[in-house]
Simulated assay, not measured.
Amino acid sequence: MFAVIFRAEIGELDQEYSELAGKLRQLAMDKYGCVEFFALCEGNQEVAISYWPDMTSIQAWKADPLHAQAQKKGRAGWYNRYLVQVAEIHRQYQVPAE
């Protein structure tokens, strides 16, 4: 299992951002195998974490044309800056155990 962590300083978000974000989340889950996705905003900071079964799924998602369009718009103004980290999950547990 892998996690993609997206951290950003928000620039100018608009209605198109809101609509596209929802479409992209659903596309990631339906077409590319994303297992879970959540995002939180506080002030002008956004953190999104998505979980993926393998690197192949992540790479296919990154290459998706709609996602590439969103990345371009993100660089053009939605975000002042962002950082993407890809991490492999080596261990996990939860309470209460299932």
Results as ranks from 00 to 15, higher is better:
Met1Gln: 09
Met1Gly: 06
Phe2Met: 00
Phe2Asn: 00
Phe2Asp: 01
Ala3Met: 14
Val4Gly: 05
Val4Asp: 03
Arg7Trp: 03
Ala8Phe: 11
Ile10Ser: 01
Ile10Pro: 04
Glu12Pro: 13
Glu12Val: 12
Leu13His: 08
Leu13Val: 11
Leu13Thr: 15
Asp14Ala: 05
Asp14Cys: 09
Asp14Met: 03
Gln15Arg: 09
Gln15Ile: 01
Glu16Pro: 02
Glu16Lys: 05
Tyr17Val: 09
Tyr17Phe: 14
Tyr17Leu: 10
Tyr17Ser: 04
Tyr17Asn: 09
Ser18Trp: 00
Ser18Asp: 08
Ser18Tyr: 02
Ser18Gln: 01
Leu20Lys: 02
Leu20Gln: 04
Ala21Glu: 12
Leu24His: 05
Leu24Glu: 03
Arg25Cys: 02
Gln26Pro: 00
Gln26Asp: 09
Gln26Leu: 05
Leu27Ala: 00
Leu27Glu: 01
Met29Glu: 11
Met29His: 03
Met29Pro: 06
Asp30Trp: 00
Lys31Ala: 15
Lys31Pro: 02
Lys31Asp: 11
Tyr32Thr: 14
Tyr32Arg: 08
Tyr32Met: 06
Val35Pro: 00
Val35Ser: 07
Phe37His: 05
Phe38Tyr: 11
Ala39Trp: 01
Ala39Gly: 15
Ala39Arg: 00
Leu40Gln: 04
Leu40Asn: 09
Cys41Val: 11
Cys41Thr: 15
Gly43Lys: 10
Asn44Gln: 10
Ala48Leu: 14
Ala48Lys: 02
Ala48Asn: 03
Ile49Leu: 13
Ile49Asn: 05
Ile49Gly: 03
Ser50Phe: 03
Ser50Tyr: 09
Ser50Trp: 08
Ser50Ala: 11
Tyr51Ala: 00
Trp52Tyr: 05
Trp52Glu: 10
Pro53Leu: 06
Asp54Glu: 15
Met55Val: 08
Met55Trp: 08
Met55Glu: 14
Met55Ala: 13
Met55Ser: 12
Met55Gly: 02
Thr56Ile: 14
Ser57Gly: 07
Ile58Glu: 11
Ile58Leu: 04
Ile58Tyr: 03
Ile58Phe: 07
Ile58Asp: 11
Gln59Lys: 13
Ala60Thr: 10
Trp61Asp: 14
Lys62Thr: 05
Lys62Asn: 12
Lys62Glu: 12
Ala63His: 06
Ala63Trp: 01
Ala63Asn: 15
Asp64Tyr: 13
Asp64Ser: 02
Pro65Asn: 05
Leu66Lys: 10
Ala68Met: 13
Ala68His: 04
Ala68Phe: 02
Gln69Asn: 11
Ala70Arg: 02
Ala70Phe: 04
Ala70Thr: 05
Gln71Phe: 06
Gln71Ile: 10
Lys72Trp: 02
Lys72Glu: 15
Lys72Thr: 12
Lys73Trp: 13
Gly74Glu: 06
Gly74Gln: 09
Gly74Phe: 07
Gly74Ala: 12
Arg75Pro: 07
Ala76Leu: 15
Ala76Asp: 15
Gly77Asn: 10
Gly77Pro: 08
Gly77Arg: 07
Trp78Met: 11
Tyr79Pro: 05
Tyr79Met: 08
Asn80Asp: 08
Asn80Met: 13
Arg81Pro: 00
Leu83Met: 08
Val86Leu: 11
Ala87Met: 06
Ala87Pro: 01
Glu88Met: 12
Tyr93Gly: 15
Gln94Asp: 06
Val95Thr: 14
Ala97His: 09
Ala97Arg: 13
Ala97Asp: 12
Ala97Asn: 12
